[in-house]
Design a protein around this nucleic acid. Structure first.
Lengths: 178, 178
DNA sequence: TCCGTTATGGACTGAACGTTCCAGAAAGAG
DNA sequence: CTCTTTCTGGAACGTTCAGTCCATAACGGA
């Protein structure tokens, strides 16, 4: 529960924008407990990012696999991104804040990405076999594109775009797969 | 020149990640001159963002208008984004760092967006008349989609994606207009 | 009930931060 | 050359921050 609270704070304010006091208050534990349990602010951030990636990855894959038809799974995943986009994405935040300057962040994100990419790639090949996604496209490139589209939608949402616009973004992005 | 140097620092490290000392060194002026000329760090950031938006907007529009055929203009704009994506975008950085919490940032970005959106929208309608962009699409939605695609590409680049991947992202995004 | 472990909050430290002060150097106009 | 304005570097200020210390309180198994 404490870690989930930390995730929320980091999502909203980033690493630099979050102070130890903000964390102590949001997590509902004493400052000393925070340092005893998580080491320091940076390791807490890494733990938060890792947990966020796991939760977010599972939710992605769940949406992806629920519908029987593969292309509907892709659509469901996109809809989920749109629905959840009001809350900032910690992964996007970490990339924008640190770029490649922190190898630990890169590793944590890469590990989560590998699993997600595999799941999306499989579903895309399935959809191609169903005739719902063009066979002109290389599955790996489509995976990259979808993940980049998610990031674009999340940035748009963070910039204040309303749900109608976000839905249009998701719809338009999926046209590229046709 | 000093402001351009400040832009470079803010692009790379964001607002919170940039210290006054970093700015003084990069801008090549005395600290006192910095405060005399720009007021404080926050106003300097606003000035940097505003200038960045103007330069970036002009470059976008120039690429957009150079080719005679409208769809080639859209492609040229996309290629420019891919080529320049190695350097972080200050606009994306500002949105990710602040969200909607700083109205000044929102205003500065909104003013730049209005001009850019109008230019892209006009070119899209032109391309629709040429038969190069589907008339099923609403021009405004395509504008939103392209700008979101730019953000997605820039986030991917910031995360370490190589040029080949970024080019594929641009190519795939443009498929959605067909 | 007792005892070892764990959690707590308030005071504290040292460093980094943004910003200001100040005295002097450089520059530019007349 | 002289006066005025602008620029400069270093010292200093007050604040905030991440992280530590410590004495105390809560907890949980036996």
């Amino acid at each position: 529960m404490a870690l989930d609270a930390a995730i929320d704070v980091f999502r909203e304010h980033g690493f630099d924008g979050t102070s130890a006091d903000m964390l102590v208050e949001a997590m509902g534990i004493g400052r000393q407990s925070l340092y005893n349990t998580f080491g320091d602010k940076w390791r807490l951030y890494q733990a938060a990012l890792q947990r966020y990636n796991i939760l977010e990855g599972h939710a992605h894959v769940a949406a992806l696999r629920t519908p029987t038809r593969a292309v509907d799974g892709l659509r469901a995943m996109m809809e989920r991104v749109v629905d959840e986009a009001r809350k900032p994405c910690l992964g996007v935040g970490a990339i924008c804040e640190f770029g490649n300057s922190k190898p630990e962040v890169g590793k944590i994100n890469a590990a989560a990405d590998r699993i997600l990419r595999a799941a999306i790639g499989a579903r895309i090949r399935e959809a191609q076999a169903d005739g719902d996604v063009s066979t002109d496209l290389q599955p790996d490139e489509v995976v990259d594109f979808l993940i980049a589209a998610f990031a674009g939608i999340r940035v748009a949402a963070r910039g204040g775009a309303d749900v109608i616009r976000l839905e249009a973004l998701g719809r338009t992005a999926l046209r590229a797969l046709r």
